[in-house]
């Protein structure tokens, strides 16, 4: 029997497999394909204080081994989530983590204060790294001061586990990670999408309405693995790794680089049942390698 359980802050995950914000809706969309109860947890898409319509269509472009998106945090707001979605998912036997986004510090705090009383929400992931919104988002995530400010504010507003989602669009991601750790973050997740762009050369126009967007999928994986490895060495708090994980092998790669848990994002679009296969693979991998506890694999390449 292999132990796949891991701890992120005060959360005990039954296995390291989470789903990434914005790729898994509210979870229900995938209920025909997977048993949500088997997941370590799932992360609700970016939630803001007010309803957001997001960016105009077109919002995506397929690129080599990946895709660009520019959704722009379309969501119905935190009150809608609490009133309409939360009652439907609160009994799932898995952790529900809400990704919190905002344009100002006050926005983040207001969402945190509304989520804090909910019994089922034992963790939030704070998005300081969205490349697709004009205000806030990535602006907070690209300086140590901005990242620290948001972390300090949400730390005071949300007493349970706080995960800060980091942007790869920086010169040195370890500085940002250290800054949020110093302000009391329980964990960091990385990477959010890489800022990218693609042009339709026949029509001589960008594919996205916003011109630039966030690149995800296996195209970004080596960058993500490198950043997870760097950050895991730089901080004491657990690291959640994501970026182009398509299968169990890729998930193990992040664990070996130093991730305590992983998130599956874009792969959900290609195979909505992929998370179950990843969990099975992890167990099988540990058995094949004579590992009784997956925690023993975390950051193995550094030991």
């Amino acid at each position: 029997m292999v132990n796949l359980g891991v701890n992120i802050g005060s959360l005990r995950l039954k296995n390291p497999v989470l789903t990434a914000s914005g790729t898994f809706g509210y979870g229900e969309e995938f209920a025909d394909f997977i048993d949500l109860n088997r997941l370590g947890g799932f992360i609700i898409k970016g939630t803001t204080i007010n309803h957001r319509e997001g960016n105009p269509y077109p919002r995506m472009a397929e690129t080599p081994s990946g895709m660009l998106n520019a959704v722009g945090l379309q969501n119905k707001g935190v009150d809608y989530f609490i009133e309409n979605i939360y009652p439907r998912i609160k009994d799932v036997d898995s952790h529900v983590i809400v990704n919190v986004s905002g344009a100002t510090i006050d926005d983040y705090v207001a969402v945190c204060e509304k989520l804090a009383p909910l019994d089922k929400i034992n963790a939030i992931e704070v998005n300081i790294s969205c490349p697709n919104v004009k205000q806030g988002g990535m602006a907070f995530g690209t300086t140590c001061e901005g990242a620290a400010q948001v972390t300090k504010a949400v730390r005071n507003a949300f007493p349970k586990t706080v995960i800060i989602k980091l942007s790869p669009n920086v010169t040195d991601i370890t500085e940002i990670a250290r800054a949020v750790e110093a302000e009391g973050a329980d964990s960091v997740s990385l990477i959010n999408t890489l800022l990218g762009m693609a042009i339709d050369v026949e029509r001589q126009r960008p594919y996205l309405s916003t011109i630039t967007g966030g690149l995800s999928g296996p195209a970004v994986r080596p960058v993500a693995v490198r950043m997870v490895w760097q950050v895991a060495k730089a901080v004491q708090i657990p690291v959640v790794g994501l970026g182009g994980i398509m299968n169990g092998r890729d998930a193990i790669e992040f664990i070996l680089a130093g991730a305590r848990a992983i998130q599956v994002g874009t792969a959900n679009f290609v195979d909505p049942s992929v998370t179950m296969k990843i969990i099975d693979y992890m167990e099988d991998y540990c058995q094949r390698h004579g590992v009784s506890d997956i925690n023993d694999l975390v950051g193995m390449i550094n030991q």
Partner: peptide, 22 residues
Amino acid sequence: ENMMACGLGACLCCVENTVKGN
């Protein structure tokens, strides 16, 4: 037939602007 990724309502890429919004 807007361009889409997931087909399940998760990625929010294929939106059409309607009287109810995107």
